[in-house]
């Protein structure tokens, strides 16, 4: 288990617990009772800790190295997944995975950022930072989904679109802009989940939908706290402050009406129990797809555009 720095008290308790268990296993003493008390204590400790997470701790959890990624969810939620590759122009971007699968027997199109679970994989996935090809692959498959009337489900988890030479030359900005534009008028249901990091245009590039939800330990805003700190405070050291100031947690985003809801995670975060998290998500997705299907296609695009039209806060002066 990997513990975050703020989980130190829990990590210490786990150490004790392991020692007790070891002693118990060696059969020197019966430790069952103590083990049980300690487990209870961990539970309580964890509950209080997770109830009072700061914005920065949320950011840390969203980047937890053991956090489940798109493919982990696909494996647990859907059946018959067929991965589909390539943007038909340049190449296949490994930072975005996509494909068709079935949910309760019905076909869906899944598109999501993919990070790696170890160093090699992380490099292969470019740390979840997509190039223009990734966004164009996503758009190609969204159009396919539209044609064959499949709902599109997006899983968002990126520290940002890749800021590289080739990415710029091949039109990173255009690719993201095009996706945002096309997604706002795609004639099929789009359901989006922020499952980790929701950084800026890189997230929004596959993040425009009829409903957008955030998992409990995620963040979503215009810039990462680190980059915000470098630009506004002119130093890397204010990321904690920046995370606070940006109000980037799911609770804030929901309060601002910029997302449609929050999906709770198992105690200790999504990484503590993949199966439980996937089960929660699966139920959430099915419910929402059913509701959206009931709302019907007729005014879907109008509603979607209207929703984004209303985002923004400003003052209107009396003229």
């Amino acid at each position: 288990m990997v513990f975050m720095d703020f989980e130190k008290p829990i990590a210490d308790l786990y150490d004790q617990l392991n020692k007790l268990k070891e002693m118990d296993n060696q059969g020197e003493m019966d430790m069952q009772e103590m083990v049980a008390t300690l487990e209870k204590k961990i539970e309580v400790e964890r509950e209080t800790l997770y109830k009072n997470l700061t914005s920065w701790q949320r950011v840390q959890l969203s980047r937890h190295p053991e956090r489940p990624y798109t493919l982990d969810y696909i494996e647990r939620i859907f059946t018959d997944f067929i991965e589909l590759h390539g943007d038909r122009n340049v190449k296949d971007d490994k930072a975005i995975v996509a494909g068709m699968a079935k949910l309760d027997g019905a076909p869906v199109m899944i598109i999501g950022h993919q990070k790696g679970h170890n160093t090699k994989e992380r490099q292969y996935r470019n740390f979840g930072m997509a190039n223009p090809e990734g966004y164009r692959k996503a758009l190609r498959l969204m159009r396919l989904a539209e044609k064959f009337n499949m709902p599109v489900i997006c899983f968002i988890d990126t520290p940002g679109a890749y800021p590289g030479l080739e990415a710029e030359d091949r039109g990173q900005a255009e690719a993201i802009a095009r996706n945002i534009y096309e997604m706002s008028q795609l004639k099929t249901i789009i359901l989006c989940y922020i499952i980790g990091e929701g950084a800026s245009g890189g997230a929004l590039g596959i993040g425009v939908g009829d409903r957008v939800y955030m998992l409990e330990n995620t963040w979503y805003t215009v810039i990462s706290p680190e980059n915000c700190s470098t630009i506004l405070w002119r130093s890397w050291d204010y990321k904690v402050k920046a995370a606070e100031a940006l109000k980037l947690t799911p609770e804030h985003m929901f309060e601002f009406n910029l997302v449609d809801g929050i999906v709770s995670e198992p105690l200790g975060g999504a990484h503590s129990d993949y199966d439980a998290m996937a089960a929660i998500l699966k139920k959430h997705i099915s419910t929402n797809l059913k509701e959206l299907a009931k709302e019907g296609h007729k005014n879907m695009i109008k509603r979607r555009i209207e929703k984004y039209r209303n985002m923004g806060k400003f003052r209107v002066l009396e003229s």
Partner: peptide, 10 residues
């Protein structure tokens, strides 16, 4: 913050 990001979509 996120309000400015959503102006891209808007």
């Amino acid at each position: 913050s996120a309000f400015s990001l959503m102006q891209l979509a808007k």
